[in-house]
Design a protein around this nucleic acid. Structure first.
Lengths: 186, 186
DNA sequence: GATCCTATCTTGCCATTGACAAGATGCCCC
DNA sequence: GGGGCATCTTGTCAATGGCAAGATAGGATC
């Protein structure tokens, strides 16, 4: 049941997804090898195909999982721009593998049903989180506002993950993100 | 000289880089195949190795080229946040292949000398472009300001390229970017 | 003008990978 | 206890990246 079973592995699908997350953290989603995952799980090289069809199938499952996780994370965050933005960046750093797959549509099937619904959940949570920026002068436009908030959080997260930011931003992504996001909210 | 010559191709290095840009626009940098490039250029499958060593070598050359191009683009843009930001997004869309390689450090050698100097140029142009945001109340912090500007432009560009933005943002990346960036500058 | 010399490109090869086909294994349910 | 089915294995193929060894050309040197 819970254990690591023999021949009929018992939980191979979950084991492969977990192994995939590990592998992606090490080499990135592009260099992911199904055969390597099979080795990590101790099964034959063709076993993954049964559960996911092909590599895109596996990454599709990961993407759906990732969007669900993001939706959950955002809905638990503080209900303002700063809280949601920091939570977004934190998610990207802590769930790097998921995040990197989610925003690389060429790697998976974006029209997959589970992906689409999970994406919808994440999108809704995002909009609820950033609510509305305090607007000055210009008439409020919630669409533009949430787009701006999403952009700055996503950009910071992406640059952080790419290692493109100067050392001076420090070691703590949450703290650094808060300082940057504050520029939008002040 | 200019033409497409036989055996000793004459301009193979350049031809391969051009072919790589084409191929990356079609299938992304991850699915790039050296053998496919060789076929496009009409040479044998091992010819690229002579000029670039390996795949990472070719992508390193592309990354350096990309950072130089970005530096040039930014230095020609209007000298405020809106102008620089729009130019940044426009660069990402028009030079998608370069842009996608530049911010995927696992694909190339980030410690390459040409890459490092080109990166420096781009960084300087970026800082000059965003200059300083108008600050209200809080004491000015140019580092944080330019980081915020970079983040929002980079985030918007990345989301645009990933096709993650809702249809409602429209077809023109420059116009859409301007609307979003204005939230930071207003 | 002949000869070397080196950058450039080719041919041949090997290990790895993704994908597919066919077969083996074990569990569940009647 | 026997059929049926999901699960996993073995075997194979084409494509790829990378390496080694060789062929070719174009210029430099004498």
């Amino acid at each position: 049941m819970t254990g690591t079973r023999a021949y009929h592995h018992g939980d191979l699908r979950r084991a492969l997804l977990a192994a995939a997350l590990e592998a992606i953290e090490e080499v990135g989603p592009g260099a992911l090898s199904l055969r390597d995952l099979a080795r990590r799980a101790g099964v034959s090289h063709a076993a993954p195909a049964h559960h996911f069809g092909d590599k895109a199938g596996l990454l599709t499952a990961l993407a759906a999982q990732g969007f669900d996780l993001l939706a959950q994370t955002l809905s638990e965050a503080r209900d303002d721009l700063l809280g949601a933005g920091v939570a977004y960046v934190d998610f990207a750093v802590r769930h790097r593998a998921h995040f990197e797959v989610m925003f690389r549509p060429e790697l998976y099937r974006t029209d997959d049903a589970e992906v689409v619904t999970a994406q919808g959940r994440a999108r809704a949570a995002l909009r609820a989180g950033v609510a509305a920026l305090p607007t000055r002068g210009t008439p409020a436009d919630p669409d533009r506002d949430s787009l701006a908030a999403w952009s700055i959080a996503h950009g910071f997260a992406t640059l952080w993950l790419a290692g493109a930011l100067p050392d001076r931003v420090g070691e703590d992504p949450r703290e650094a993100a808060r300082a940057v996001l504050r520029r939008l909210v002040t």
